[in-house]
């Protein structure tokens, strides 16, 4: 079975509180905190769509969509 490929990675900026949990636990260092203290997927090309950011986001702000969803 082919690995799921990333379609969209969205972060709700109104819901994100900039706690850095997604940034720290991303295995591919895709995310970072911007100058507004919000998480952004700065390196989407590196994303392997493991969804760990989405699963651990305490603010339900992250949504990762893949070609399998």
């Amino acid at each position: 079975m082919a690995k799921p490929k990333l379609k969209t990675h969205t972060i709700d900026r109104d819901w994100c509180k900039g706690c850095s949990i997604c940034v720290e636990f991303c295995p591919k260092d895709v995310l970072e905190i911007d100058d507004m203290d919000k998480a952004v997927a700065a390196r989407k090309d590196d994303c392997i769509a493991c969804k760990l950011c989405e699963l651990r986001c305490p603010d339900l702000a992250v949504e990762v969509r893949t070609d399998k969803d």
């Binding site: 109104d14 819901w15 509180k17 900039g18 986001c57 305490p58 603010d59 339900l60």
Partner: peptide, 24 residues
């Protein structure tokens, strides 16, 4: 979820949000 009540009141990084996420 009831989206109209988001963002929730929990502090940044509060574990309770992760429990909510997992429970859903």
């Amino acid at each position: 979820i009831r989206e109209r009540f988001f963002p929730h009141i929990w502090c940044a990084g509060c574990g309770h949000g992760i429990v909510l996420n997992s429970m859903i």
